[in-house]
Amino acid sequence: MLDILIERFNYIPIIILMMTGLYVIIATGNLVKRLVGLSLFQTSVFLLYITIGKVFGGQPPILVDSGHGEDAGHGAETAAHGAETAAGYGADAAHYAADTAHYAAEAVYSNPLPHVLILTAIVVGVATLAVGLALVVRIRESYGTIEDDALNAADYSLETGSSE
């Protein structure tokens, strides 16, 4: 049991963050705090992606020219294909082995693709948070509160009040 947990230690903080975020979203009635929970929830997923890109003993994915004569000749070609192989062969262990055998031994690198994906996801998260906060500002302007209970009460009185 413990072995299983230790083997997968990277998931433990992710799960804790994720559950905290979800709990905050559900438990709080404050609209800003709910967005905090939402951001926490999203961030845990960013971590999930980042950790799956890690390869043990892997270096940053910068192409290393090993300096051997035959490899130097491949330099330009390797550089051109660098991004492609790094992105494509990613987490696939079988491809990865073939890849490392092909290049010099020191070219073991972590998979950069999840990082790139998460850059995009972070932008999406920021945009969501910005729109969410802008909505909260507008809600505060027209209702005078950002507490869920008070908002529901205001909407309810509006509904019953306007139905003559």
Binding site: L38, L48, L135
Partner: peptide, 30 residues
Amino acid sequence: LTASYNYLVLGTIGATFFVIGVGFLYMATG
């Protein structure tokens, strides 16, 4: 405004669930 806010929170949870699923698929297939 409140309708849009609630949609934002739920929609983002939905999208995040989706992206977790895609992450698992990426783990499994590369």
